[in-house]
Structures are given as C-alpha cells and as structure tokens.
Nucleic acid binder design. Structure first.
Lengths: 230, 230
DNA sequence: CCTGGGATTCTTACGATGTAAGGTAACCGT
DNA sequence: ACGGTTACCTTACATCGTAAGAATCCCAGG
C-alpha cells in the first residue's frame, strides 16, 4: 500500500572500507573525540549497530583508521626516489620522515592513535622495515640501525608529540606572569627571543623547524657513529 | 532513636589533596582506565558527586594527578646535586632526566597524562626552567637551549613513548611470520640479534639502554653545537 | 512466480560514565 | 537555640559502546 513512502537515493551498501574512510573523515574535521559509533553511522546514513557487521568493535575502527593513515604514508613515501647509498642515507631518511610528517599534518589526530594501537600494524612495520633498509644501504650494522630506530622513536613517523592537537592553545604569557619570578630562565629566554622576533610571543616556536632541528641532531649523531664503526 | 545504627570509624574528611592522592593510587594499580569518579569516590568511602565539591570535574583530576607526579619529579631532581658548570652541563642534564624517568617508571600512566594536559603546569614549567638553567650554566645561548628543549621533547621528562603501558605485549614473532617476506630488513635484524643474544626474541629491546642511547645521541649532538658556537 | 535461507541492517535495551540540580546533614559563630 | 555556610548525598539525565535478537533485503532453487 502506498509503496515506498520515501524512496531515498538508495545509499551505497556499507563495507569495512567505507566505514573506515568515513571514520577518517570524521576525525579529520572534528577531532578524534568526535568519532563515536553513532556519529559514524550517521555519516553513512545508517544506524550504529549496523557497523558491527563490518567491524568487531570501536577498537577495530581505531586500528583501522591508523592503518589507513599508515598506508597513506607508505604511498607518499613510495613516490619518493632518493639515492641512499653510502653517505646519502641521511638525506634519504630525512626526506622519508618529512614526507610522513606531511601526511600526519593532514590528520592531526593520527599521532595519538598510531602511537597507542598501531605499533605492530603491517603498514607501520613496512615503513620501519624500509627505513632500516635505507640505513643498511648506508652502511649501518643491524645493531646500530636498531638503536637508531629507538632513538628516533615517534620522530621516525614524522611527529614528536605535544605539537599536534594542541588543546586550546591557552595563553602562556598571562598565566606565566604570576609565578614568573620562579622561572628565571624561561622568562629570560622568552624575553630575549621575543626581542629579536617581531611577531609576538604567540607562535614563536616554529613546529616544522624545531622538528627538523631535533631530527638533524639525531641523524648527525648517527652518521658519526656509523663512520666510526666502519 | 536507636542512635547511629552503624557508627563507622568516621572517615577523614575529603579534600582536594586526598582526592588527588587517591586518584594516583587508583591509576598506579589498575591503570588510567580504572580511574572513574565513582571508583575514586569509593576509594575514599564517599559518593561520586561529593568529589565535585573539591574538584571542578574529571579533567581537573587528571591535571591534578599530572601535577602530583610532576611535583614528585621535582622533589627527586631537587635532591640531586651535580656540578653543572662548563662541559659538565651534559652530565647534569642527563642525571636529572634519568631521575625523572625513574619517577615515571613508578607511574606508567603518567606519560600520556603529562603529555596531554600538563604542558603548562607550574611544576612542569619549573622542571623545564631548571633544565634551561643547567644549559645556561654550561654555556648555551637561550636560542640554542630553546632548540635543545624541543629536540629532547618528551625525553626531557624521562620518557619517549610506546614503551609504557605497552598494551598487552602481544607476540610479534608469530604474527610477523605471515608477511615476513615483505619485511626483509626487520627479519634480518631480528635473526641477527637473536643469534647473538641467548634470551629469545621477547624483551630483546632493553628500554632503559635504548632510552639512554637516544638521550646521549641528542646530548652529544648538542654539546658539539655548543662548542662550535662559543 | 513463489519461497526459503543467508547476508545485511535495524530496534530495543543495558550497563558504565561524567555530571547537573537540588536535598540533607554537620558545623559554627552568635 | 538557631540561621547560614560548608560538606556531602540522592536522584536523574545524556552519551557512549555494544549485547540480543527481530526485520529486511537479495538471490538461487522449486
């Protein structure tokens, strides 16, 4: 009777892949906190419980989106073609890591997820395996390369914490004033650098260059160790 | 009538301090996931809503326990007395950081909490201020010391991620077998190191020495920069 | 065509969590 | 004794993940 009251445009069927893609979309705009099963279902024009036919539970969704990002990283890294033999290993590693970082900048929620659930994801393993490969080409022993990966830590994937999802960026300057006399060096540093730099105390740390500074520090140190052990 | 049916031993009154201490206790054994307002109230022999008289909300509890740990770190670090002038800055910084690390090993939940809510906590600021002080004593410019803090990142506080709260430590070896042919270098590394090392593939990474390796790599690199800029 | 049985989606419901709103009890200076 | 803070409790709600099972869809076999 009165057939299909509301014949909508027949939404595409669900699938693990569509679910994960939608999840990434939601996290990208709205943060990881916006990713709930109900919101995710809504995004797909379905009901929350329908998702469980394609995903075991929310944890699997998180692992899934971590893997999506890891795959995206590997794709970008695959596209690079940088010579890596001998002393050029350093530049090759550097390029790869900075490429990974660019991907993560598009997914600010990813570092925390990668870090907590994806250490053993196939894609992440593959990424690390290839970093190891570069170091081997450059003349590293496995032992040194292994230490190197530990030394790099999350930097190997292009992040180093605290700079992503920076909460609400609430003001350091005002709150600092109260007990500033107890922090002579921080205050000294701030005033000295603010003096040199025209733009005010806000955003006076350039994430990108700080990241590269730390990265290069490590890579230079590793290079010295490599030479010494050759 | 029939006065105080059950005259218990009159539990000590609540207070912000007692609440935070209880919260740390719960997180210490049970993990950060075990810390709920109801569980916290139970630990104190009270009801959940009573806590809200002493704490604004759960987020304040988290900030609070981060600060408790940070205070603990500062206490331990205060007890150190290491000469720091000139070239000895490096050893002084190293000792402080390893002391902080020992505190964090007693509170495995702390890294994640510190990292997300305590960047601007007074105690953390104080800790960083004193690291800066050591570097100044050692001859750093504020500019270089500033980069140094960024380079150290979470390592400055004694952790470097992924090694704490390691999930369930599920086996790498078996799962790896499936696609091991795609990971030639990881497999090569594993087999080579497993060969040298009598104890099997489990726990073949010594967190402590890996941490120190990365830390020294950074400190050595900084020392070279410092000398060059003098 | 019907029909029945998997594959897929939805409905309803439960327990856990953070916390708003407002009541009750304990304490204290007058 | 009593009014007012201060400290604590009761009840209730929204939101979350998800268990259990009903409803629907789709297609091969009669």
């Amino acid at each position: 009777m009165a057939a299909d009251a509301e014949a909508g445009p027949v939404r595409a069927p669900l699938s693990r892949d569509r679910v994960l893609r939608a999840a990434v979309r939601i996290a990208d705009d709205g943060g990881i906190g916006a990713l709930t099963m109900r919101r995710l279902a809504e995004e797909l024009g379905a009901e929350a419980m329908s998702l469980y036919y394609h995903v075991a539970n929310k944890d699997e969704v998180l692992e899934g989106i971590a893997d999506v990002v890891a795959r995206e990283i590997n794709e970008v890294v695959d596209a690079l073609d940088v010579p890596s033999a001998g002393a050029r290993w350093k530049n090759a590693v550097r390029r790869r890591i900075l490429a990974a970082r660019e991907v993560l900048l598009r997914h600010p929620w990813a570092p925390s997820v990668l870090e907590t659930r994806a250490a053993m994801s196939p894609e992440i393993l593959r990424y690390h395996d290839r970093l190891l490969g570069l170091m081997r080409d450059g003349g590293f022993s496995y032992d040194l390369a292994h230490h190197a990966l530990h030394a790099l830590g999350s930097r190997a994937l292009g992040f180093s914490q605290e700079l992503f999802d920076p909460g609400d960026g609430s003001g350091s300057p005002e709150e600092l004033a109260g007990f500033a006399d107890r922090l002579p060096h921080l205050v000294g540093m701030l005033s000295e650098i603010a003096h040199d730099d025209p733009d005010s105390t806000l955003g006076w740390c350039d994430d990108q260059s700080e990241f590269e500074f730390g990265l290069d520090l490590l890579l230079d140190g590793l290079d010295r160790l490599r030479e010494r052990s050759s």
